[in-house]
């Protein structure tokens, strides 16, 4: 509790101060808008990941699924047009999410195995479909999704904001959210209380898949082409934002609001490190350390719960 209410906000302020001292450009409107734009994709995947984690799962396949959807949606778009391509991407996300959900809820595979299997399969299909090459010649209008603005705000950030508010209300105000928490906290208690556990699990995975689909389509627009490798690392980033925010793996504790802070912290960190010229390779190392550290600290704080 104190971490997400006090500790993490303090860390965020501290990072912002540090980076603005190290590089005066940090606080420029242009850069902040960049942070928002870059964080938008992470916001989508992290919201989905958080809901799945709250239900007791977690998804390692996010990155490769983004790649697959990027390729597939691009192919559909080139063949049939802008809107059908975007719709196909989002629906594919729902379908893949539902398959992950069925593997976890009906076949009782551990999420680690189910989503690792999905990762491999998605990667393979993406490479088969694309032959390892980027898919270009996307409609010109498609660029607007990733690069457009609404009232001077980057469109992807606006989408992310809507998703955050929607997911927050869903988790806190509705029966759906209550059941996701209950399943994550004690699946047997939820079952005994008459909650249709499998149905809710599959639904939360499908919803996560929908957000991954949207993220993939937006990311494809930003890249102006479909790539099998477009989402590389997205699974770890979304898990990192979730656990840094304070949502615990496998205990049904945490919230979408926590994850918003996690996303902001990740966004500032990545952007700040870029501004002070820390290479992406070092950033990957930092990410590994941060994930392990965040989960360790969480376990240590909740010993004996």
């Amino acid at each position: 509790m104190t971490w997400s209410r006090v500790g993490l906000p303090a860390v965020i302020v501290l990072m912002a101060l540090t980076f603005s001292v190290l590089n005066p450009n940090f606080y420029s409107a242009l850069n902040l808008r960049n942070v928002a734009r870059q964080s938008a994709i992470l916001s989508l995947t992290a919201c989905g990941q958080t809901m799945v984690v709250l239900s007791g799962g977690f998804d390692l396949s996010v990155g490769m699924v983004i790649g697959l959807i990027s390729v597939a949606a691009s192919l559909v778009m080139v063949e049939t047009g802008l809107w059908t391509g975007m719709l196909a991407g989002v629906l594919m996300g729902v379908g893949i999410g539902a398959i992950n959900g069925v593997m976890v809820a009906k076949m009782h595979l551990p999420p680690f195995i189910a989503t690792l299997a999905m990762l491999s399969a998605a990667r393979g299909v993406a490479l088969i479909l694309s032959g390892g090459l980027p898919i270009t010649d996307l409609p010109r209008d498609f660029r607007w999704l990733g690069a457009g603005q609404v009232l001077t705000l980057p469109l992807p950030a606006v989408i992310a904001a809507i998703v955050f508010v929607g997911c927050h209300l869903l988790m806190k105000k509705t029966r759906f959210g209550r059941y996701v928490y209950a399943i994550g906290g004690n699946e047997e208690a939820a079952t005994y209380a008459g909650v249709p556990v499998a149905r809710y699990k599959i639904s939360v995975w499908a919803l996560h898949g929908l957000l991954v689909g949207v993220a993939a389509v937006v990311l494809t627009s930003r890249a102006v082409s479909g790539h099998a490798t477009l989402g590389e690392g997205a699974e770890l980033e979304s898990i990192a934002a979730t656990v840094i925010g304070g949502t615990a793996l496998g205990r049904g504790r945490g919230s979408i609001a926590n994850t918003l802070l996690g996303v902001v912290a990740m966004g500032i960190l990545t952007n700040g490190l870029n501004l002070v010229n820390v290479s992406t390779y070092y950033q990957m190392v930092a990410m590994g350390v941060i994930i392990a550290g965040a989960v360790y600290v969480d376990q240590w704080r909740h010993r004996g719960d």
Binding site: T174, R175, R178, Y181, A182, G184, G185, N186, E188, A189, A190, Y192, A193, G194, V195, R251, G252, R253, D305
Partner: peptide, 29 residues
Amino acid sequence: LALAPNLDVVGNVFLGRERTKRVLPRVME
């Protein structure tokens, strides 16, 4: 297996038969 430890007392007492109010009839509760 009686309780969900992460839910509060109210959440546990009402688990599985939550009271709801309509926000938008038929669409959202």
